[in-house]
Each structure stands twice: as C-alpha cells, then as structure tokens.
Design a protein around this nucleic acid. Structure first.
Lengths: 225, 225
DNA sequence: CGTGGACTTGAAATCCATCAACACAAGTGG
DNA sequence: CCACTTGTGTTGATGGATTTCAAGTCCACG
C-alpha cells in the first residue's frame, strides 16, 4: 500500500540519504498508513528508504508464522539496503510513516572516482547494522527476559535522545518479536521493572514510560566484558 | 599467543584478502595453536585476517561469562574487519590454525580512484556478514532446539561443500554457544536426529557425521517464508 | 453504550537448563 | 603396562524460566 503525498516530492530531512545518493538520483517522499507493508521479503529490491517521520519494523518470518524483528527504524534511519536482487526481509510501518525513497541501482556497482565517497558512507551504514545485529545476537542467545527488556528500553531511550518521558512507537507484540519473547513475558518483565522502581508507566497510555534509574537498568543489561 | 611460521611469510591461498588489499600491503601468515586467542574484544583493531587452515570462533561475552559465538570461520573466510578503532568481539582458534594477516589501516579511509573497487569488495563482505547475522537472529529468537541444530548441520554441510562425511571442527560447547543452547541440549537434539535416522554418527569420533536425509533436515530448518 | 484492541495478570504446561552420573579416549607419569 | 587424570560427550532426573491458555481491565472509538 503506497500513497503518494499530495504535496508532491519534498526534500525535507533527507540529509543522509541525499548524501549517499549524490545528486544523481531522485528522492521523493512517500507516506504509508499504520501497518502498511513497505516491502516484502523476496521482492525485487528497487528502493532504499529513509524514515522522515513515524516508525518502521523490518522482520523475517518462518513458514508457520513465527516472526523475528531485526530492527526498528526511527526518523533519520535508512533501511532497505541490499546487495542482491531482492529484499532479505519484510518492512512495514508501525505508525503512519513518511519515508524518503532513492533508487537502489544508483548505490551499487559502476563506481567512478568521485563516487568512492558514497561507497565509504554506505560501508559505514552497513557496518553499523552489522554491529547492531551482533549485539542483538548476544541478547537473543544469552540474556534473560528481564535483561532483554532492560536492554531494549535503554536502546530506545538512547535513540530517542533520552527525553524525560519516552513514548514507545510499537506495541508489546512487536517488542516481544524483537526480543525473542512472548508479549506476556514482556509485560511481566515490565511489571518487574516497575515494582523495582526502575521505570514508571505514566497514567493512561501504557506506552509512555519514564526511565527512573538508568544506572540500574544498565546493570541489568549486563554489559559485555 | 602468536607464533610466526618458520618458513616466513607466504602467499598461499590468500586470494580474497590480497584482492581486497591490493598490492599496497604486506600479507604474512601466522600460526596459532589450538585454543589460542587471536584478538580480544576491545583491543585496537590493527589487522584483518583470513583463515588458511584450521578454524576460528568469534564471540562476545557477558560480564558473568555467558558467551555468544557470532560465527565460525573456516579456510577462506575473512574476519576481524572493523570500522572503528577496536575489535567488537573476541576471536580464537578452535584448532591449530594458520591465518593470513593484512594491516587494517589499508582498508579504510583515504580512498582514491583506483581503490574504489576494493571498497566495493569490502562492502560485499560486510553485507554477507550482515545477512548471516540476520538469519542467525531468526534462529536465536524463534527456532526450537532441534530446528537450531538441524540448521547448524546444514550450514556447516554447505560450507564444507557437502561431503559424504562431515567432520566438525568444534566441540559441543562451541555449537551450544553458537546456537544459544547448552551442550546437553545440543547432545540431545543430535540424539533425536540420530533416532529419526536423519544423521549418522560414524564410530569412534563423535564429531564425524553423515547427513543421511538433507531434505528432512531442511524441513526441520523451517525455511523462512 | 457497546465493541474491539491493547495490555495485564494468574494458572498450568512445556521446553530447556541445571545437576549428576557415567562412558570413553587420550595423555601422563610411575 | 597400568593407574590416574583430563577432556569430551551422552543420558537421566529434577527444577525453573518462559510459553501457553485463560480471564479480566482499561481505553479508544464508532
């Protein structure tokens, strides 16, 4: 489901993607309603995306429906970079989302002198993704439920810029599928953190959180050696 | 623990690493005895390595000793590529191992025209690592013990070139730490596969396996959608 | 006001981890 | 050559963390 913005292509907030792409390619903005699929695993990888507003999940599925979310993408994040012909995972909007779009072809292959800088940027981007994936493997393979949730909260906190009040863009099931747990277990882990007064859930909306004791959360996070 | 080969630097079997590095840098071979550490997490990332013979594990540790092995590296594989100043994980030899070594500095930054090809190779390398990490996150987050072991056997089988008889270079604990399980669970999963006649363990050495029914193993592997 | 989605909480079941015993092969040193 | 140790792997019994099943609450929204 793809909805072109009525206002037409815009150039807002595309710093990184534009830098990667140089002047050679069209960047246009697209808008997706909540829960719209942006692309599916196995589809031809035509575009690279950068989130302008909203939030995106990328994930893989097993045949019976089990899902593993690789990453959440917040404003500024680039996703959908592929080396091969097709996307290796699916992506969809978890909120109403606006993204910048660049043609994939421009990013790989046939580089000339003045383009080598782009590749270096691209390399940094992929390397950061790899780094995140390595950290996440440690979490999925070896951390307990409470540790996973603590790690998750700190990650989100940092990416959002450690505001006093944090608003999560995703529901409990998405968190669970990101952390390799069930939504009930996520809920219970949050309850534990609440009881220990490490976090507070402010009033009505259960996705609005305050990290009361980041130090204690970091200790639960179990930092690697 | 680092042992320079008596025969001095060699150029055997360094195809890929040499191609990445061009002619500008020295490649020398080093040898590590079984269980020797090649580098540790957090150390300055001075070198990039390529396995000539033997096998290497790369892994992260939590403060209390829990370990997650990211990957096993077999002959031909390159590891230790870093964008930052330090290694993000540790690496050690799981057998007597010979590696080719290239200075890291040569690989990042300050690229000129004729070097852009190297970066592209490098990009492909990092992308393949990322792809593997994404698949492994799905395994760690969502697969059952038997599924994990089946996936592991097929992965090794393919990488070794699907010989009729497979000899695993790592022990059960390493497999467990790669799959996010305990060694007992790995042992039991192998017992299940043996009872179902999907694999056979040939005689004395318990690391010598035959994949009797790759199709059935692949079905257990649960292929993503 | 009623319905449905999101979340929490409790009880029971399950898968895997932990604890423990044992088998076996390869060294090591008397 | 044999006793002893050590490393590796298997298997059984038990326990525990998480999942599964099942209510039930609270909002948001028509």
């Amino acid at each position: 489901m793809l909805v072109r913005l009525k206002s037409g292509p815009q150039k807002l907030n595309e710093g990184h993607l534009a830098a990667l792409a140089g002047d050679r390619l069209m960047c246009s903005d697209f808008q997706y309603p909540k829960l719209a699929e942006i692309f599916g695993e196995g589809e031809p990888a035509e575009y690279v995306y950068q989130v302008t507003s909203g939030a995106v999940r990328t994930y893989k599925l097993l045949a019976d429906g089990r899902r593993q979310i690789n990453a959440f993408h917040l404003p500024g994040d680039i996703f959908g970079i592929e080396n091969g012909e097709v996307y290796r995972f699916s992506a969809d909007a978890i909120q109403a989302t606006t993204v910048g779009v660049a043609r994939r072809l421009s990013l790989f292959g046939g580089f000339t002198q003045r383009e080598s800088g782009f590749t270096t940027n691209l390399l940094g981007l992929v390397t950061r993704n790899l780094q995140h994936a390595e950290d996440h493997m440690l979490l999925l393979g070896r951390k307990t439920a409470v540790e996973r949730v603590a790690t998750f909260l700190l990650e989100m906190d940092e990416r959002i810029g450690s505001p006093s009040v944090m608003i999560l863009p995703m529901n409990r099931r998405d968190i669970a599928d990101y952390l390799g747990l069930t939504l009930e277990t996520v809920s219970r882990a949050l309850a534990v953190l609440r009881k220990r007064s490490l976090i507070r859930v402010t009033g009505g909306n259960l996705r609005v959180l305050v990290l009361v004791d980041r130090g204690a959360l970091a200790k639960l996070d179990q930092m690697d050696l």
